[in-house]
């Protein structure tokens, strides 16, 4: 079994200088590199102290420079928020600079504040995300990119650099909802599974993915399917429970914050985790 760390850049209460958050994260990444971890997976968020890392690709370059063997994952690049060519360029550059150590995780995102600030109508976010993924993969694998849609038109464009890994870095799609799982499986993509699902939900989603993958004619064998889990470990059970309680509070505060207010009010089906809160249940209280 493989181990990775989902690296947040949390700044709870804005305690201490923000640069210390990055220094501690980089120190931790060094420990991962020297230990038995497969990868660090960097989480992209915007406009929140829940995790202050608006560019996983920039931090990824820094992580790559300070490590020798650790794979550098994105969990995720919020693909709907990028121009797809800039995204293709940045991830490919990271792959080259890191010596071919990129695990590319892509996601649509779900925070209304992020969509609004970046000018992405939430109703179009799924389409934009899927198109961005298509364009990134084509930009990486075609010597010259020719592409035409309602949103983009490229004619024989040489997108550089190409990734070091061929045909391209391994790719995962963040998939928490049934439609997202269906789409990822239908395209043969591996998936990243979210940290907020209960164990029962995790099992249901994993089985759904396997079924859909088989229906689409793809094999499940040999795939790494990272399942994100929040972890509280301590020397005693009581201490670990207290760490878990504080973590639950931190998570709830983040999802009840202003970045998600519109989801909570108007569109409870946008994510797997927010509706649980919206329906009056504490997903971490069960």
């Amino acid at each position: 079994m493989k181990f990775g760390i989902l690296q947040f850049f949390s700044w709870p209460g804005r305690h201490g200088p923000l640069e210390d958050v990055y220094a501690r994260a980089l120190e931790r990444i060094g420990i991962m590199d020297r230990g038995g971890f497969d990868a660090v997976w960097l989480a992209e968020h915007h406009f929140t102290t829940y995790s202050v890392c608006p560019s996983v690709h920039m931090v990824g370059v820094l992580a790559a420079a300070r490590t020798k063997r650790l794979r550098i994952g994105t969990a995720v690049s919020l693909a709907a928020l990028y121009h797809p060519l800039r995204l293709a360029e940045e991830v490919a550059l990271l792959d080259v600079i890191s010596g071919g150590r990129v695990n590319w995780g892509a996601g649509r995102g779900f925070a209304p504040l992020e969509f609004e600030a970046f000018g992405v109508p939430p109703a179009e976010s799924t389409e934009r995300f899927r198109e961005a993924v298509d364009i990134v993969l084509q930009a990486w694998t075609q010597e010259r990119l020719t592409y035409a849609s309602a949103n983009y038109r490229f004619d024989g464009l040489e997108v550089l650099p190409k990734p070091l890994q061929k045909p391209h870095p391994p790719v995962w799609m963040a998939a928490t909802s049934a439609p997202a799982i269906d789409w990822a499986a239908s395209r043969g993509f591996s998936i990243l599974m979210d940290p907020h699902a209960t164990t029962t939900e995790l099992g249901e989603k994993r089985r759904l993915y396997a079924r859909r993958l088989a229906e689409a004619g793809f094999s499940d064998a040999g795939r790494d399917i990272p399942m994100a889990r929040l972890i509280a470990v301590a020397k005693t059970k009581a201490e670990a429970t207290e760490v878990a309680r504080r973590g639950a509070q931190w998570l709830l505060s983040a999802y009840a914050g202003p970045g998600h207010a519109k989801v909570l009010q108007t569109n409870p089906e946008k994510t797997m985790q927010v509706p649980t809160i919206n329906h009056g249940e504490d997903p971490l209280g069960r």
């Binding site: 990243l192 790494d224 399917i225 504080r246 973590g247």
Partner: peptide, 10 residues
């Protein structure tokens, strides 16, 4: 589970 993506809380 074949790949644990751990998010440590402390």
């Amino acid at each position: 589970l074949n790949y644990l993506l751990a998010a440590p809380l402390s």
